[in-house]
Structures are given as structure tokens and as C-alpha cells.
């Protein structure tokens, strides 16, 4: 593979994929383990064998909170930790349901929100409770 430390770096590549409408994460060829946020080397092993693979977009809510700003300071919204089906965890928000209705264990699916300055990943209820 290409040198892991050449530009564009993994951070930029992740964003470029997202701008193309693709949620990609990295997998270490030697162990098969996935990692997020994007790295130049695998944490722990130090392997520089990370390859980009399409994420399933499936996740489960691991922890959840409702941030309650006054309306003029940003209002009320969800912030949650999502466990991806591939293993890694990420901070995000669950949309399409009231912020306080987001529950730990809820099955969610990733979507790309392109409404802001740069596209970001958000999650929506997938229906049912993940196993």
C-alpha cells in the first residue's frame, strides 16, 4: 500500500469520502480490527496496514444525553455515543426522534447530513433494539 504518512492524510481522506456521500472506515489488514477516528497507524499494534472499507452504517446507542441550551443559545438537542457494528465508537447525534426519546440500546443507522458547512455523520432510529 501507499506510505501511510503521505498526504492526503487519513483525516482528509475520511472527509473527502464523506463529501462524496460515502461513510468509510479503516480496517487493519493484519488483525481485521476496525478503527475510528481515522489514523495513520493502528492504535496498539502500530501496524501501518490500514485500508478503507465501506462502513455498514449500523450502530447502537451506547450512551445518550440531551444538551439543553436556552433557545437563543442553541436550543435542545441530542448528543450520543454510538457503537458501530464494526466495533469502533463515535460521538454523534440521533435525529428523527425527540432528543429525550433516544435510548441506550436503540438500533440506529448512519446518514450523511450535508446541511452544514461540511458534511457530518448523524444517526436515525433503525427500528427495534439491536442485539
Amino acid at each position: 500500500m501507499a506510505n501511510a504518512f503521505t498526504a492526503p492524510g487519513p483525516d482528509q481522506m475520511f472527509r473527502d469520502y464523506l463529501a462524496q456521500g460515502r461513510f468509510m472506515i479503516q480496517r487493519s489488514k493484519s488483525t481485521g480490527a476496525h478503527v475510528f477516528y481515522p489514523r495513520a497507524m493502528m492504535p496498539g499494534t502500530g501496524a501501518v496496514d490500514l485500508e478503507w472499507v465501506e462502513a455498514s452504517g449500523k450502530g447502537t446507542v451506547y450512551a445518550t444525553s440531551v444538551v439543553r441550551h436556552r433557545p437563543e443559545k442553541g436550543g435542545v438537542y441530542n448528543v450520543a455515543l454510538i457503537d458501530l457494528a464494526e466495533g469502533p465508537r463515535m460521538l454523534s447525534r440521533v435525529e428523527g426522534v425527540a432528543p429525550e426519546a433516544v435510548a441506550i440500546g436503540m438500533a440506529v443507522a448512519a446518514a450523511i447530513d450535508s446541511s452544514g458547512e461540511t458534511p457530518i455523520l448523524v444517526f436515525r432510529p433503525a427500528g427495534g433494539t439491536a442485539s
Binding site: 483525516d11 450512551a63 444538551v67 460521538l91 454523534s92 457530518i120
Partner: peptide, 25 residues
């Protein structure tokens, strides 16, 4: 953090709130 900031966590409180939510669960 570029992977957290877009979701506007109110740090540090939100992080501790997430821990509390999981501890309760």
C-alpha cells in the same frame, strides 16, 4: 476535537452526562 465538535457537546458536562446515562442504564 474535529470528530466531536460538529455535534456541539457542551464540554465537559456532556461527557460526564454520557457517563451518568450509561451508569444509570
Amino acid at each position: 476535537d474535529p470528530y466531536e465538535a460538529p455535534y456541539k457537546p457542551r464540554l465537559p458536562i456532556t461527557a460526564y452526562a454520557l457517563a451518568a446515562s450509561r451508569h444509570m442504564y
